[in-house]
Design a protein around this nucleic acid. Structure first.
Lengths: 336, 336
DNA sequence: CTGAAAGCGCTTACAG
DNA sequence: CTGAAAGCGCTTACAG
């Protein structure tokens, strides 16, 4: 076998018969040969690496569990193809852009996963200009510059609103996250348009994700002459803090105030009462993202996709009839 | 300037005057030149990449926040040296070993960070045989095969025990994690030797980290004729679940039963009562780990180090005098 | 399909 | 210190 033939077989290039290709691939599998990735990269054949940068300021700490699960899902796809994941945590979006620029000149990654899209986000344009393959987690990009894999946040919000509506709630507050984030904006919008449709009293209060801001916003709501009977929180940390505030206010969960979280976590079922939460299948989300990106890396033009909305797990914090242990989602399910 | 001189300057090799070296480094900095990493790797000069593999079965999900903070700390050191972090989440230790073997033949990383050391752990020996630079997070390796950066878990345990002792507790239970893990073993040992020294009634109950096992173990303790007056939990998730069980048992926290967690998290200060917890400076831990590893990568022989024990943040779950808000560690501090 | 060859961008002995 | 050169292990036109 010539060097050329082997290289063609390995890289799926034409100019070689199917039979020869099969024989080569067999031999390669048998010998356990893997081409040296540095040599491949230097020769311009891609780095077999995907990049993921998370720019998080200390304040906006939220559900980190989300990232580990997302990464696990991404790698279920990458590992099978012998791809690695280069992972960076940086303090700001500016440094995130620097990372992309360096990766680009070094051809260190074949593509990147983009998270936390926000208003006026400079990243899609930069990635475009750099010519990097990229997939947006949680778009879609309003300007359509990047292909995305998103969860339908509006549908997710309606799931919560329907649940609360069925339980008879008419005054609802949403303690939201940073409205700069695209998914927060979408959720807020869904809440407001529900208010119009259902003629309900809906309040959306943006926060910076801190429990300080969250509990402050909540206290403001409870102090109203006609306080809301249901509070929806952006994530489980805010929800836990919220339950504490409600109880100290002398009110009962769920009898006086129902509580729902946009994010599930073991904490939600560990608490008493357990907290009703939207459950995203983050692991599957991750693998969908990775598959989407791999297609782009292989030169396909891939359309944005919207995944099915998450599942609402009704528990004691909103549904008095939900026996605590019924809402106890097994830990193994939470990882899926 | 000759190609050789530049290369020597960049790689800190001798055979070049200090003056020339300085001039070259200046020019390089000014031009923003960074050597192509793939070419470096192929030429045998290291990959400018560090690897971190986390093997976690779905059941042993615990404080994922720990990993993100550890990684952020690691990267505060790596980024400054233009090093990348290759991060893998795999389902089992066997697959973790496969990753190391592949990385080794591909010279994909210059060194690795090892976490979750357990009994009869095959990884130190494999890494040794592969000749990979490695640093152990949370050792020391009982057999001394790998250099480690550890938190003094015995001292950490004593910190908790002293706190409880000062509050008058004589019957203490420790709802532990998987005793296969080295740090769990060390903590348990510290509890048992305290029992002997202080003639106290101490029980250590191993679990698989699941809230099911944790609440089961706790219920067993509360059912004793002389139940413990203080319960120490391996992490914040178990602690939160434990508080729920104690309350449903008709007991009060902290009046009837004091609660302490070995791991801090925003959740601990979001809960009411807030949960007393050991606070590791995980971010700094990460940077210490990375510096230790970088020295090894540079060929130094580095001795294992033990970091100062964590700080105990006394809150309402154990200390009735701790006003709730006093124990409220700012989120920004939690990230440090 | 084969074979010989250039090239990717570095590092590193080697002779000056 | 310089300069010319080999080599790292691939990919990829190119002529057969």
């Amino acid at each position: 076998m010539s060097e050329t033939a082997v290289s063609f077989a390995l890289n799926g290039r034409p100019g070689i018969s199917d039979d020869t290709r099969a024989r080569i691939l067999n031999a390669v599998a048998e010998l356990g040969f893997t081409p040296n990735y540095a040599a491949r990269t230097l020769a311009g054949a891609g780095s077999s690496t995907i990049g993921l940068v998370v720019a998080r300021a200390p304040e906006s700490i939220g559900s980190e569990a989300f990232f580990l699960r997302l990464i696990a899902g991404i790698q279920s796809v990458l590992s099978a193809r012998h791809y690695g994941l280069l992972f960076q945590v940086v303090p700001s979006v500016e440094e995130e852009l620097d990372v992309y620029r360096r990766w680009s000149v070094d051809t260190r990654v074949d593509g990147v996963v983009l998270v936390d899209l926000h208003q006026e986000d400079p990243r899609p344009a930069v990635l475009r200009d750099l010519g990097m393959a990229a997939v947006l987690v949680g778009g879609p990009d309003p300007q359509g510059r990047l292909s995305s894999v998103a969860i339908d946040d509006a549908a997710a919000a309606r799931l919560i609103l329907d649940h609360l509506s069925a339980l008879g709630h008419r005054r609802i507050a949403y303690v939201a996250g940073d409205p700069e984030l695209e998914h927060v904006r979408q959720r807020s919008q869904a809440f407001m348009s529900y208010a119009g449709d259902a003629d309900a009293d809906v309040v959306v209060i943006p926060t910076d994700f801190s429990t300080q801001a969250g509990t402050g916003a909540l206290a403001g709501q409870l102090a109203r002459t006609e306080p809301p009977t249901a509070i929806v929180f952006e994530n489980e940390v805010l929800a836990v803090a919220g339950v504490g505030v409600i109880k100290r206010w002398g009110l009962s969960v769920p009898d006086d105030v129902a509580v729902v979280s946009f994010e599930d976590s073991v904490i939600c079922s560990a608490m008493r009462p357990q907290i009703t939460a939207l459950h995203r299948q983050t692991y599957h989300y991750g693998s969908a993202v990775a598959e989407h990106l791999m297609r782009q890396v292989n030169g396909e033009q891939v359309a944005s996709i919207v995944l099915a909305p998450p599942v609402l797990v009704a528990r004691g914090s909103s549904d008095p009839s939900a026996a605590d242990d019924d809402g106890d989602l097994p830990v193994s399910d939470l990882l899926k």
